[in-house]
């Protein structure tokens, strides 16, 4: 892991990888969304409304996966003082917040035709909204610090503590009676028929690669800005 500790070494890998991640992500997600709109069958109960699945589930996965990434990076920063961990966590925060917001929006657009409501304060929806506010708090904290590219120790602790919400979101439909149905895909298998499931595999994988490309680009921007700032500071001192 410390092999990537050197920003130069990290950039030597990140630079060529970024366009490939982006291209593969756009192709996979594009095919997944196309198949989800035009090739897969409607659902026996919900009809065509089920197609929102192909954007809602990747958004939920990336919103929650994003914070899990922030938590792991925060741990690496606090325990091992990994120099790139703070940069990575900071780069994840904005796309993580975006996909959490997209999950809430697409969920609302799904809830109206399926359940008959745009919004209800049930466990799943409320805990997901809490995640969005945690992201806002994290972004504000990260931008308030005077770190050149990473985040302060306090911000990293916030990233770690906020991860408590992730299992709560996951379990919310089990612990409490909720309007949202339980998970369709678990370790035990999938309750989604293969004909409806396969576009989701493509779109989830595709959006994940796009997410990774966005994170790499944001990391590169943070590192480049830190370099300029360090140079200006040296020039001012000289």
């Amino acid at each position: 892991m410390h092999g990537f500790a050197n920003p130069t070494r990290f950039l030597a890998i990140a630079r060529p990888v970024t366009p490939w991640l982006a291209a593969a992500g756009v192709l996979l997600a594009g095919y997944g969304l196309y198949a989800g709109l035009f090739l897969s069958p409607p659902d026996y109960l919900q009809g065509e409304t089920v197609r929102i699945l192909y954007v809602h589930v990747p958004a939920a996965w990336l919103g929650m996966g994003g914070w899990t990434g922030i938590a792991v990076a925060s741990l690496a920063q606090i325990v091992w003082r990994h120099p790139l961990a703070g940069v990575a966590a900071r780069a994840v925060a904005v796309p993580g917040a975006l996909f959490t917001a997209l999950c809430l929006l697409t969920g609302s657009l799904w809830g109206r035709p399926a359940w008959g409501t745009w919004w209800q304060w049930d466990g799943r929806m409320t805990s997901m909204l809490v995640l969005l506010f945690l992201y806002f708090g994290y972004i504000a904290l990260a931008n308030a610090g005077d770190e050149r590219s990473g985040v302060s120790r306090a911000t990293a602790i916030f990233g770690l503590v906020g991860a408590v919400n992730i299992p709560i979101i996951n379990r919310s439909v089990v612990w409490w009676n909720s309007l949202h149905q339980p998970a369709s895909i678990t370790l035990g298998g999938s309750k989604i028929d293969a004909a409806i499931l396969y576009p989701l595999v493509f779109s989830a994988l595709g959006f994940t690669l796009i997410f990774a490309a966005i994170v790499l680009m944001r990391m590169r921007a943070l590192l480049a800005r830190a370099k300029v700032e360090a140079r200006l500071r040296r020039m001012a001192a000289a």
């Binding site: 709109l37 799904w110 035709p113």
Partner: peptide, 9 residues
């Protein structure tokens, strides 16, 4: 609803 969800995403 489907088109709006795809458009925002």
């Amino acid at each position: 609803f489907v088109i709006a969800a795809y458009a925002v995403t």
